[in-house]
Design a binder for these strands. Structure first.
Length: 640
RNA sequence: GGUCCCGUAGCUCAGCUGGAUAGAGCAACUGCCUUCUAAGCAGUAGGUCUUUGGUUCGAAUCCAAACGGGAUCACCA
């Protein structure tokens, strides 16, 4: 088992300072003065003690204090070989033995950096959960890679993890596609309507096509309704709607452009509800809820197409799920909890029968949790689903929701409600909120056709990787199959790394050209370095060396230090729900190794002790790179 | 307007709970393949960390305000 010597040394130094401090400095040491940090890059030393707090208390200059402490520590602590005082910072230099022992310890640890499986509590990670009316796009890619990677991170950190997604298989959106398909899908020669099987179209793409079709017809009808209204023809229109329309029309006067646009949107909304096609879709939803056999069959057929399509996409992404929650099963959940909460005074009821929660004391608004007609809203469902999950998994301690930051408010409210209902685990639920992915041309908008389709993008990225790898890869010995896998690994690795390397919380820019780059801060750069080490190790296989007689120099120490930081990097990335932390670490390690590789002969080194240390070091760098990439969901090819 | 998030090099991003001279990658320029994979390495150039106050030995980091960008404020999900 690997022991983080760094950490142990820090504790040891702290103990010595506390016990001997008075003797050395003449005053009692306040533990809060003792602040260590890794020594700054480019400065000699391994760990740095801040001496400012001491200097202040002792009324001495930092340099004087540092000198006094340094002298004593050097003479009394075996692993401190030297010390240096620069600008009031006290830098301790650890002995070479210390570092070579560290390397040996890392080497002897099988899954270095990975915590004992299931040593920490169980968490559920929800991600993906797309709507079924449209194919997956770039935004989903960020969501899915992020969620999957956080699940991997939690596992590596010792948690038991349940990966889950909610299948949004009910609601008006799927009815829209169903209706449009029923009305407009061309009849094939065999008498069937268009299906994935007879058209060769991916299921999600096909259903998405009819959703668009629906929207097209809807827009046309809206136009008709509006022009009728403008002409003063309100036949077949409810008087409430007419009043509302005229009211909004009046409100237009004297408003600026922005306010007018908002009002126009509302008018459009009114007109939408007056269209035949939307009414037909709503009827369909009612029939679905009433379990009308024909509607139900169509629904399950078309849903099936979508999931078959999504499965293909997930498979290429390399992600999976342990447990699925179907909205069609869970949409009735939560009502009981709401009624129970109502009885306990957590919620209150308005005269129309709708149920609300007043969150104004918490600085939020009043929020509807159940409609007047007793049907559930989004919030009701989420309350129910969360509770259901804790029933399904009694050992569960928290849920991570990978959902875009436009829902920050929703989750804030959800967690608060759960807490008010008395569920202590609400404190361990976390909204993994990520920023939007923008394009160089701006925001993705389906209406303007600027949405980047997930399947298309993956195809493109793999194609680009194929071209580049055929050009410069060392692939002569690979079979056709192996090549195919390699291109896939490189293309997808580049894409995943590109989306994961930035802080999830932040909005990010997706530059198509950069995403297929193979140089610089990219996935393929790390993969390449891993492959190159493997090539080296294949050749080193023949060389005998003695692992107990290692010799190391400054360059090796720098790398060992980085390797030793792997476990704490995983811990940090896991607790911050940030694969980006890990990605940046891997990049640092890769850069450091490449620099080392370029200036130090490894197999060609004549000094056997040095050569042994360098081979061992290379082996462990490769080990960490592979393990780290795996957590990011990225393959680490043996050669490329 | 209320609430929340963001503002670091031409561009894209790192900078952890305050610490030394603010770092990478891309783009630009200069070098390095008859030694282990050049998808690499070494170097040059590029910064009032949006602004102004405050806290402190010490601020890109913490606090406040202003400015700029975004999200959200549905009986949609």
């Amino acid at each position: 088992m690997y022991t983080d010597l760094n950490r142990i040394m820090e504790i040891a130094l702290k103990d010595i300072l506390l016990s001997k401090g008075k003797e050395w400095l003449g005053i009692d040491i306040n533990p809060s003065w003792i602040q260590f940090q890794p020594t700054r890059k480019g400065v000699r030393g391994d760990i740095t003690l801040m001496v400012f707090p001491f200097a202040k208390a002792l009324q001495l200059t930092p340099a004087e204090v540092a000198e006094r402490i340094g002298k004593h520590v050097k003479s009394e602590v075996s692993f401190v070989a030297d010390y240096e005082v620069i600008q009031g910072f006290l830098n301790f230099v650890f002995s070479k033995i210390f570092w070579s022992d560290q390397l040996i310890s890392i080497n002897q640890t099988d899954s270095f950096g990975i915590s004992e499986p299931n040593s920490k509590h169980m968490v559920m990670v929800e991600y993906a959960s797309p709507n079924t009316n449209k194919p997956l796009h770039l935004g989903h890619l960020r969501n899915i890679f992020l969620g999957y990677s956080v699940a991997q991170l939690k596992k590596a950190h010792g948690h038991q993890v349940i990966k889950t997604q909610v299948i949004n298989d009910r609601g008006i959106h799927i009815c829209k596609s169903m209706l449009a398909w029923h009305r407009y899908a061309p009849i094939q020669s065999n008498g069937e309507r268009e299906t994935p099987a007879n058209s060769g179209l991916k299921g999600d793409k096909l259903v998405g096509k009819y959703y668009v079709e629906f929207e097209k017809h809807l827009q046309l009808e809206v136009k008709e309704v509006l022009s009728r209204w403008d002409a003063g023809d309100f036949s077949n229109t409810a008087s409430v709607t007419v009043d509302k329309f005229q009211e909004l029309n009046k409100a237009l006067e004297g408003k600026d452009e922005k306010a007018q646009a908002a009002i126009y949107d509302k008018i459009k909304e009114l007109a939408k509800n007056e269209t035949e096609i939307l009414r037909a879709a709503k009827d369909m939803l009612v029939r679905w809820e009433g379990r009308d056999p024909e509607t139900y069959l169509l629904w399950s057929t078309m849903n099936g197409w979508v999931y078959d399509g999504f499965d293909v996409t997930y498979k290429r992404m390399g992600v999976d799920f342990d447990k699925l929650y179907y909205e069609s099963d869970t949409f009735l959940l939560g009502k009981d909890q709401v009624m129970d909460g109502l009885a306990r005074g957590v919620f209150y009821q308005k005269p129309d029968g709708s149920v609300w929660i007043d969150l104004t004391p918490d600085g939020l608004d009043e929020k509807l949790v159940l409609r007047a007609d007793g049907t559930a809203v989004y919030m009701t469902q989420d309350i129910g689903t969360a509770i259901e999950r804790f029933h399904d998994y009694p050992a569960l301690s928290g849920i991570v929701y990978t959902v875009g930051n436009e829902q920050d408010y929703h989750f804030k409210v959800l967690f608060l409600i759960l807490q008010k209902l008395g569920y202590t685990w609400a404190a361990d639920c976390y909204h993994l909120s990520y920023g939007m992915v923008d394009l160089p041309s701006g925001k993705m908008k389906s209406r303007e056709g600027t949405v980047v389709d997930a399947d298309d993008l993956m195809e493109e990225v793999v194609n680009a990787a194929t071209v580049m790898t055929q050009e410069r890869g060392q692939i002569a010995e690979l079979t056709e199959d192996e090549r195919h896998n390699l291109f896939e690994s490189i293309g997808m690795g580049g894409l995943k790394y590109y989306l994961l390397k930035v802080d999830p919380k932040k909005r990010m820019l997706f530059n198509p050209e950069e995403s297929i780059d193979l140089t610089g801060n990219t996935g393929p750069f790390i993969q390449y370095t891993h492959a190159r080490i493997n090539s080296l190790l294949r050749k080193a296989g023949l060389i005998q060396f003695d692992k107990s007689a290692l010799e190391i120099e400054a360059g090796e120490i720098e790398l060992i230090k980085l390797l030793a930081a792997f476990p704490q990097t995983i811990a940090e990335a896991s607790s911050n729900y940030s694969p980006a932390v890990l990605a940046n670490y891997l990049f640092e390690l890769t850069k450091a190794y490449n620099s080392f590789y370029q200036q130090s002969p490894i197999l060609n080194e004549i000094n056997p002790g040095l050569r042994a240390a360098r081979i061992l070091l290379s082996e462990n760098v490769a080990k960490v790179l592979k393990s780290g990439l795996n957590i990011l969901g990225i393959n680490a090819p043996e050669r490329m």
